[in-house]
Structure formats: C-alpha cells, structure tokens
C-alpha cells in the first residue's frame, strides 16, 4: 500500500501537503493551489503522517492541536507527581490536610489572636481557611511549576513531547492537594452553617481563573529558571512576600482603604481569593477586584506562555 513513490510528493513544496499531515508545530499556511492539493490529499491518505523538523518562528503562543493530543501524557505526569509525593510518607495523603490546617492555625493564633487582625470578622477561623486553601494552591502551583523544567531535566534533554506539559502537570498535582483540602473546606462550611447558597457556583469559575494565572506565572518562571538559575533561589522568598502582599487571605475587606482597594487587585491572587471566599460564604462580590484580577490574569497568561514558547526551544541546549 505504501508502494507510491514519495519522491513525487517531496518534489512539491511542503506547504502543499494537506494541513492534517503537516507537522503539528509548523505555522499554518494555506496559500497553495487547491487542485494540486486535492490530488495530494488522495495520495497522502494512504501514507504515514509527515513530520517536518525545522527551526520555527516563535510567534505562536501555544500549539493547541499538539496539546490536545497529549491529555493522556499530562494525566500520567500529574499522576506521577502526586504518587511520588505521597508514596513514602507514613501519613501519606493526610499531609494534604495537615498542611493547610497548620497554616490556618498560624494565622488564627498569630494574626487573629495576637495581632488582633480578626477584628470585624465573625468567624476568623473559617475566614482564614477560605483564604489559605486557594492561596496554598496558588503558591504551591507556582513554586513547583517554576522549578518543574529544571527538575525534569532528564526528560527534557532526552525525549520530545510538548514542554508545556511539565509545568502543567506540576500545577495539576498542586490542584490535587487543593481538591483534598476542599473536602475539609466543605465540611467546615457545613459545620458552621455558613453555606453561601447559589453564589457557591461561582467559586469554581474563580478557581478556573486562578488556574490560568498559575499557568501564566508558572510557565514564565519555569522558562526563566532554566536560563537564569538565580531565580530559583529567589522563588521561595518571592512566594513568601507574595503571600503577605495578598491581604485577602488574612484581612477583612472592610479594613482596606479606597486606594488599597483600587490597587490591590492588580495582584491576581488578591482579587480572586477575595471573591472566592465571598462566593463561598454568600457575601457580596467585589466585581471591581474580580474584573481587574481577571484582566491581569489574562495578560500574565498570554505573556507567560509567550516567554515559555520563546525559551523552550533552547531548553535542551542550555539546561
């Protein structure tokens, strides 16, 4: 069945090969004559898929087709990250609950009781829990995605697959921890009878935006860390500062002045966590903060993916 002479095909400009058969990472270019194209399509239907390896221009942000074919690999990489993390720990999965609980305890004792920041909040423990859980997802996802390419060096230098899957799988594993924590959160909401009603449906949407933010920032950092290792050492410190710069976690919204309220949502974590909690507890949403944070998220997402795309081709050379 493959007895056709491929030379015939190869005499023709590659751009005339039907798009399905073209390499997934080559920019589309549909400028060729259609009659020739149809003829070729009938020939190449029998043939094996064609891949072209050539230097590529860096203007395409993501290759959706290639990514959509890699769901299984993304799942396997995520599953690996989760499995390896809990494999040898005696307490195993319980850590996914203990970590947020310990963080909540720190906030309640040191910020709430000793720092007196709980003023104006009815149930500070629940309030902090609603902030700490999404923050831990945000912080852990960015930190692990940021280091992901470097820590998967062996994979990256030895085999081809869409590189973006590496930070994405780290974010996926952080998402798994978060889902375990959500069980705790739901239990707490029911226990305190604070279920927010219909607005709870908004929480997953807000989380979705938060995932986009971690993808943008995480992929940016993972690329930058490969090129400039110093950033790796700055990262833990950066995330700590970022946490304190996100007062939505531990401060009541009423305590922000008008200027702070206007500026703080530029930090996407702030606006998203603020509204995540409001949606869960059925409090009025801050639409301004949500809008600004979402807009910043989208910009960060596009920028982060763009930088990743520009850098990924040199990963194997530089790492």
């Amino acid at each position: 069945m493959l007895g056709l002479d491929w030379m015939i095909l190869l005499e023709v400009d590659v751009s005339t090969i039907p798009t399905i058969l073209r390499p997934s990472h080559e920019p589309e270019n549909n400028s060729s004559a259609s009659s020739e194209k149809e003829e070729l399509a009938s020939i190449t239907k029998l043939a094996k898929p064609h891949t072209r390896i050539a230097p590529r221009s860096g203007w395409q942000i993501i290759n959706i087709k290639e990514l959509s074919q890699s769901w299984e690999l993304l799942w396997f990489l995520t599953w690996r990250d989760i499995k390896v993390r809990y494999k040898q720990a005696t307490l195993g999965l319980a850590w996914a609950l203990l970590q947020p609980l310990a963080n909540v305890a720190v906030f309640v004792i040191f910020f709430g009781r000793m720092g007196g920041l709980s003023a104006g909040v009815e149930n500070y423990l629940l309030f902090v829990l609603c902030g700490v859980l999404p923050w831990m997802f945000f912080g852990n996802a960015i930190a692990s995605a940021g280091n992901s390419i470097l820590s998967n060096e062996r994979l990256v230098t030895k085999i081809y697959f869409p590189r973006l899957l590496v930070p994405l799988s780290s974010i996926g594993a952080a998402g798994f921890d978060f889902l375990v924590g959500v069980g705790l959160l739901v239990a707490a909401l029911i226990w305190y009878g604070q279920w927010g009603g219909a607005s709870v449906a908004l929480a997953p949407l807000i989380l979705g935006v938060m995932v986009l933010a971690t993808i943008g920032i995480g992929s940016f950092l993972s690329a930058v860390i490969v090129l400039q290792r110093d950033v790796r050492h700055i990262l833990p410190f950066l995330m700590q500062v970022w946490m304190f710069a996100t007062p939505a976690i531990y401060l009541s919204p009423e305590s922000f002045g008008p200027t702070s309220s206007a500026i703080l949502p530029l930090n996407p974590a702030h606006g998203l966590i603020l509204n995540f909690r409001a949606a869960l507890l059925g409090q009025p949403l801050d639409w301004y903060a949500l809008g600004v944070s979402t807009a910043v998220t989208l910009i960060v997402l596009v920028g982060g993916l763009f930088v990743f795309r520009r850098c990924e081709k040199s990963f194997a050379d530089v790492i």
Binding site: V14, A47, R52, I53, P55, Y160, A316
Partner: peptide
C-alpha cells in the same frame, strides 16, 4: 531527529511515527 533540540537551519522530514 528526535526533536529534543532544534536545528539552527535546514530541515528534516520523516514519515510515520
């Protein structure tokens, strides 16, 4: 050829997996 590094110039075409 296994697409781990990108060529500086030139190209390679292959058919199949």
């Amino acid at each position: 050829l296994s697409r781990v590094v990108e060529p500086t110039s030139g190209s390679a075409d292959y058919f199949g997996r």
